Amino acid sequence: MSDLADFPITRRWPPRRPDAIQLYSLPTPNGIKVSLMLEETGLPYDAHLVNFASNDQFSPEFLSLNPNNKIPAILDPQGPGGKPLALFESGAILLYLAEKSGQFLPEAQRWEVIQWLMFQMGGIGPIFGQLGYFHHFAGKEIEDPRPKERFRAEVERLLKVLDGALEGRDWIAGDYSIADMAIGPWLRGLRDFYKAADIAGWGSLKNVPLYLDRFLARPAVQRAINIPARG
Rank of each mutant, 00 (worst) to 15 (best):
L65C: 05
L43T: 07
F134K: 06
M121G: 00
P147Q: 06
S35D: 06
Q115R: 15
L158F: 03
P60G: 12
L210H: 05
G79I: 11
P67G: 12
L117I: 06
F193M: 14
Y45I: 08
T41L: 01
Y45V: 05
L26A: 13
A98T: 04
F62E: 10
S2Q: 13
I199E: 15
Q22G: 03
F215T: 00
W202Q: 09
M121A: 15
D192S: 14
R188Q: 14
G201E: 07
A173D: 08
L190S: 04
E141A: 13
W116G: 04
R146C: 00
Y45C: 09
K195F: 11
F62M: 12
A197Y: 01
F104C: 07
D3Q: 14
V50G: 06
H136Y: 12
L166T: 07
P18A: 15
G231A: 14
P60H: 10
S35N: 06
A200W: 04
F7L: 07
P185I: 02
G42T: 10
L131V: 12
A197D: 11
W202V: 08
P209Y: 09
G139D: 13
A200V: 07
P185C: 03
R16S: 13
S101T: 10
G123H: 11
L75V: 12
L75E: 08
W171T: 03
S101K: 08
L205W: 02
D163I: 05
L166E: 07
F104D: 06
K70L: 15
V34D: 01
L95E: 12
L131G: 12
L87I: 04
A200R: 04
I172P: 01
M181R: 09
E154I: 09
A98E: 03
H135A: 15
A217G: 00
L187V: 02
L85G: 05
L159Q: 06
N30F: 01
L97W: 01
T28N: 04
E61V: 08
A197T: 04
A179S: 11
L75N: 11
G189F: 13
L187H: 02
F137M: 15
D198M: 01
L131A: 09
Q130C: 05
P77T: 10
S101R: 05
G201V: 02
E154Y: 08
D19P: 01
D3L: 11
P67I: 13
H48I: 03
D19Y: 00
P44A: 14
G91M: 05
T41G: 02
N69K: 13
A173R: 05
L65E: 04
Y96A: 00
P145W: 11
A165K: 14
A165E: 15
S177Y: 12
G81N: 10
L63K: 15
Q120G: 13
W116I: 09
I172K: 02
G125S: 14
N55R: 14
D175C: 04
A5H: 10
M121R: 02
F119M: 07
